[in-house]
């Protein structure tokens, strides 16, 4: 199993960055034991506020009540009913959007999110090759000329492409895409006009993953399709997202 469970304490203490929070929120939907633990530990952490009691200036009460009297309340969300599935998939889409938005604003956070993802791939993270790829990603993400572009997948999730012209390289980040069967994988393509060049097969089955993109000059777009887990030489299914590079 993945390492992400151990993030429970940091998550409850708000000691994670936006991208880790998004990743962990997604994890909570699938992990009842973490969800239970989060409930208990949030209750516990709130008790730490007992020690911080401090009476606010009296004007705060008048200001809050005045603002409340002109603030409309949220409608109650429909409780997950017999069709829990649609709630989950909508929620996933929202989370993926949040991840992509965060990628745009928190450049430093990208690195940590990728680090986190890498950990999630457990054994792979220990391999020399994976470490080298992670170092490579960090070098690219540290470039001052980093450009961030993103596109939505046709059935949920986002493809974010971060490129450094100086390095002629980039990082593709797939977030919140629906998981595929274990014998299938998302595959990335670099498009030179209408000609695709294989640019990396992501982890089999995974809807969240990242990969280094090399040799970007002359390329017009990054595309993604679903392929057999071993990868294809040419796309065999429809392009789900295409992010222009120019």
């Amino acid at each position: 199993m993945s390492d992400i469970h151990t993030l429970v304490g940091a998550y409850v203490l708000d000691a994670v960055d936006d991208l880790e929070r998004a990743a962990f929120d997604r994890h909570l939907a699938d992990c009842p034991s973490c969800a239970t633990e989060v409930g208990e530990l949030l209750e516990t952490a709130a008790r730490l506020a007992d020690g911080a009691w401090s009476v606010p200036p009296p004007r705060l009460r008048a200001e809050v009540l005045a603002q409340v009297s002109r603030t409309r309340q949220e409608r109650p969300a429909p409780r997950p009913g017999r069709d829990g599935r649609s709630t989950v998939s909508r929620w996933r889409t929202v989370t993926a959007a949040a991840v992509a938005a965060a990628v745009l604003t928190v450049a430093a956070g990208v690195t940590s999110y990728l680090v986190q993802q890498q950990r999630v791939r457990d054994e792979r993270a220990a391999t020399v090759a994976a470490r080298a790829e992670l170092d490579r990603m960090q070098e690219i993400l540290d470039e001052p000329d980093l450009v961030v572009r993103r596109g939505g997948l046709s059935f949920g999730g986002r493809l974010t492409v971060l490129t450094s012209p100086a390095r002629d390289a980039g990082v593709a980040l797939l977030a919140g895409a629906p998981p595929v069967p274990p014998d299938r994988a998302y595959q990335l393509w670099l498009m030179a006009g209408t000609t695709p060049r294989p640019a990396g097969v992501l982890t089999a089955g995974a809807g969240d993953d990242s990969a280094v993109l090399a040799g970007l000059s002359g390329m017009s777009a990054v595309a993604v399709t679903v392929e057999p887990a071993s990868g294809s030489a040419q796309p065999t299914t429809d392009v789900l997202a295409s992010v222009p590079l120019t």
Binding site: A49, D50, A52, W53, V55, P56, R61
Partner: peptide, 9 residues
């Protein structure tokens, strides 16, 4: 309010 303000402060 005192709990909220105290914590935030």
């Amino acid at each position: 309010a005192a709990r909220v303000y105290g914590l935030v402060r």
